[in-house]
């Protein structure tokens, strides 16, 4: 969130005079659950990037191919879609939820990070 301005600094009438300023809005403050990236399990399929309703997945192009590089927590609202669509969240044999240590994305309560 940009610093809140006083009434003398704001344009009148609630007008937005700077197009595209929604990017300054730190929607990450809405997050209750935080997706935690475990790169050792990631297969870089980009399903998370495809489904993310914001632009919270950080991607790096290496040798012409996209690589998942974690999260932009400034925007990530913690909806959990990425973890839901991630193929590593499911055990391929049992079709049951995979154990946490084998997943690429684990959803953790934001309270676990309260000290950050």
């Amino acid at each position: 969130m940009p610093e809140l301005k006083g009434w003398k600094e704001l344009p009148i009438g609630g007008l937005i005079v700077e197009p595209g300023n929604a990017k300054q809005y730190k929607t990450g403050t809405w997050r209750v659950l935080r997706p935690v990236y475990q790169p050792e399990n990631c297969i870089h399929c980009m399903q998370c990037w495809l489904y993310c309703p914001d632009q919270a997945i950080v991607v790096e192009i290496v040798d012409g191919k996209p690589k998942m590089r974690g999260y932009n927590y400034y925007y990530c609202k913690g909806c959990g879609l990425c973890a839901n669509v991630c193929p590593k969240s499911t055990d391929p044999k049992t079709k049951q939820p995979a154990p946490e240590e084998k997943r690429a994305i684990v959803m953790r309560p934001e309270t676990d990070f309260a000290e950050e």
Partner: peptide, 10 residues
């Protein structure tokens, strides 16, 4: 609540 009050003050 973050800006309405400032606009009323204007």
């Amino acid at each position: 609540y973050d800006y309405y009050f400032e606009h009323k003050r204007q």
